[in-house]
Design a protein around this nucleic acid. Structure first.
Lengths: 217, 217
DNA sequence: GGGCGTCTGTGAACTGGAACACATTGAACG
DNA sequence: CGTTCAATGTGTTCCAGTTCACAGACGCCC
């Protein structure tokens, strides 16, 4: 697995190699927590392998899953830009291979090659747009649509081949901010209609087009 | 009204004056739309005077108010970083005095004074943390808490003195993603309990501590 | 194989908040 | 002053989704 091509974000070769020279490799075991909400931090992480869950706790103890990230994405960018408390908890769902980029390292890169800054700014803008869109969906869409969209997103994040997601109904429920039961009901209804197939802890998408139409896309 | 002190964001004198030299003054009439969701844009705006509403449309036509901004804040930063479609609509609630900062101008500033970049990055980080927190509240809190928090936020945004907000129940409802009726009910209950006083199109906070406790703060 | 704990299906009751339906109240303007 | 139209107050009905309550089902480990 070559370091230099693990990012699926459109990144110039120059920025890519500049960051990679400085990013430090690290590993996580399954279920290990990389950082907790409110922890202080000043680093961003690129995911080279494995999957992590980003989540927040509500005051009442409910967990809200924000995202599942895997090879090709990054997370923790807020603390990179403004050192301070993390806004979410990052937990490894499985064995993970990461690259850590500390704030000082980023500043060093930008100091040496100021022209890269334009690109960095654009990347941040893209990320903000992404966050905003997701917030929207969370707030405005009814459960079935949120669920269908989440499944489709998770599918793109999965290595190609069989569109088979490995997560339980409860995990999925956290990710869409709904109850386990509601998710189960939606899934088993879709199963009957042939949109997907479910097993213990796994969901296989059979009819992505159908799901897309449920999702309103 | 001096230009140089209209921003209540912690900003170094140097960055402040660098940006102000390039930002172009502009005005809006009440109810005028500065830009629409999906419009292409590449500029950020500082608010010198007046108030604007930032909002998004749901697919079903419902309006979700994201924020009300006034003197001292800025908005439109996503398109500044990554020129492209706006994620929200910006509408003047009253006569507004703005300063427009285009992407090219920002890049010019940063090109001339690369050391300012560190500060810019931090500002963006702060904004992202802010957005994330708000998203959270929107999703996780029950209506009364969302409402109380929104009122308190709006109050800090208001010029000092009487904690009197000028907006209708419907506007408020859009801002917390609820129905006008639900907002009316909460408000009139709080009115009976002496937390606030309401008039036609205005809300005066009488007991901020009480509201803070409803808000769970 | 036989327990045991975690997932999964599916009902039934409950509830926050939306949608609908009016009555009322001002405030602005001729 | 009345007219008129938007802003409010309040009750009723409805519904998506939660909560509670079980009943399998599958995996796993001794």
């Amino acid at each position: 697995m070559l370091d230099k091509d693990f990012l699926d974000i459109p990144l110039s070769p120059e920025l890519r190699s500049a960051l990679m020279d400085l990013a430090r490799p690290m590993c996580l075991s399954p279920r290990e927590t990389l950082f907790d909400e409110h922890d202080d931090g000043d680093a961003l992480y690129f995911v080279v392998g494995g999957r992590l869950e980003l989540s927040m706790m509500a005051e009442d103890g409910r967990k809200l899953g924000l995202d599942v990230v895997s090879r090709g994405s990054f997370f923790g960018e807020i603390a990179l830009l403004d050192p301070g408390p993390r806004t979410a908890t990052a937990t490894a769902l499985e064995e993970c291979d990461l690259r850590m980029l500390r704030r000082a390292d980023l500043l060093q890169v930008l100091d040496r090659s100021p022209h890269l800054m334009v690109e960095v700014l654009r990347l941040i803008g893209i990320r903000m747009r992404d966050i905003t869109d997701q917030m929207n969906e969370q707030i405005l869409l009814p459960l079935p649509q949120k669920l269908a969209r989440r499944l489709l997103r998770l599918a793109t994040v999965t290595e190609g081949g069989p569109r088979c997601l490995r997560l339980s109904h409860s995990e999925l429920a956290d990710l869409v901010g709904a109850s386990r039961e509601a998710v189960s009901k939606a899934l088993s209804s879709w199963k009957k209609q042939g949109y997907l197939h479910t097993g213990r802890g796994s969901i296989e998408l059979l009819d992505e087009a159908g799901l897309r139409s449920i999702a309103g896309l």
